[in-house]
Amino acid sequence: MKAVAVTPGLQVEDPRSFQDTERTVPIPGDRDLLVKIEAISVNPIDTKVRRRSPKTPSGSDVIGWDAAGTVVAIGKGVSHFTLGDHVYYAGSIQRPGANAEYHLVDERIAARMPQSLSFAEAAALPLTALTAWETLFHNFQLPLGLDSLDRTVLVGASAGGVGSMALQLARVLTNAQLIGTASRQESSAWAKSMGAHHVVDHRSSLIDQVHEVAPDGVTDIISSQATDLHFSEYAELLAPRGKITILDSPTSVNILELKGKSVSLHWENVFTRPVHQTSDMKVQGRILEDVARLVDSGLVRTTLRQEIAGINAANLRTAHEVLESGTQIGKLVLTGF
């Protein structure tokens, strides 16, 4: 089968960073689906893993976590899928990635993709939808409907993949006030289209801007990037007993800034359940089923913003360059081998 391999530790400009290659089609294990990949999406985790040295977490040089495709074989323990099902999923960072013609995924973390979407539109959703859902409803325990009227959520980098899904899910399923951050007119407009009630500029001081629309501060914060830069502002903005979820890997934050208000800090790693084979691992499949229903009901839409035809080394290099530029709005998807 065709696959795209990476050489960990190289910069994206290096021609050796991505290489077209041939690999053996994998054989499904007990709970595995063998999926013929139709579309893959690129996320910041892809660029981080590619830049790692000397190897990836899985030990494989094929990365990629976000895929949509068709089930072509199943393991003997599979009970929820049949051949021909169209599925979407994020996968596990400790297994070879989806930048290949065929890919294995545990059935418990996959779901049938929304019927109203193309493969490309569906591939844009899984990783960011799971991250947003786990943050909002597991970490923040945000109540559904009117019970969340007293909550104000600040969504950092709200025009990105996770931000876009967090805004949509919170807007549709709760009555929380939603404040996004963005730095350009285009990204601000996108965040508002995703559900933000207000958008503030994260290039300037957040405190005054947020207090203009939320005088009492915010109850919850999603920090997906630049946490080191904004952490002290977040600590000041958070209400007593508030919650913050961090997605990136800050190196210089002082968590004691949260102690006086009894603020709780959460980490969010979408791969925790599949990597550690937790007893509730199948929750991720159920989340994706719920997201599919919301999409097919017209309540949530794909965050696909840019589509590139052809899953190959050259196009993946281009996709990684776009992500590393920090200007991507929504999601970028590659389709077809």
Rank of each mutant, 00 (worst) to 15 (best):
A3K: 05
A5V: 03
E13A: 13
R23K: 07
T24S: 13
V25D: 09
V25R: 13
V25E: 15
R31Q: 13
K36I: 01
V42H: 03
I45P: 00
T47F: 06
K48E: 14
P57F: 12
G69L: 04
V72N: 07
V72Y: 06
G75I: 01
G75E: 10
L83I: 12
G84K: 03
Y89P: 01
S92Y: 05
Q94T: 15
P96Y: 03
E101L: 01
Y102K: 04
L104C: 07
V105M: 10
V105K: 10
A122G: 03
Q141S: 14
L142P: 00
G145C: 12
G145A: 10
V155C: 04
I179K: 06
S183W: 08
S183N: 11
E186T: 09
W190S: 08
S193Q: 12
G195D: 03
G195Y: 03
H202R: 05
S205Y: 01
V210Q: 01
G217W: 05
S223V: 08
A226I: 09
D228A: 04
S232P: 04
L247C: 00
T251E: 12
V253M: 13
I255N: 09
L256H: 15
L258M: 13
K261N: 07
V263C: 05
W267K: 04
V270T: 14
R273P: 03
P274L: 06
T278K: 01
S279Q: 14
D280H: 13
K282P: 02
R293W: 09
L299A: 14
L299M: 09
V300R: 00
V300W: 03
R305M: 14
G310D: 04
I311N: 00
E324G: 05
G326C: 13
Q328V: 14
G330N: 02
G330K: 00
F337V: 06
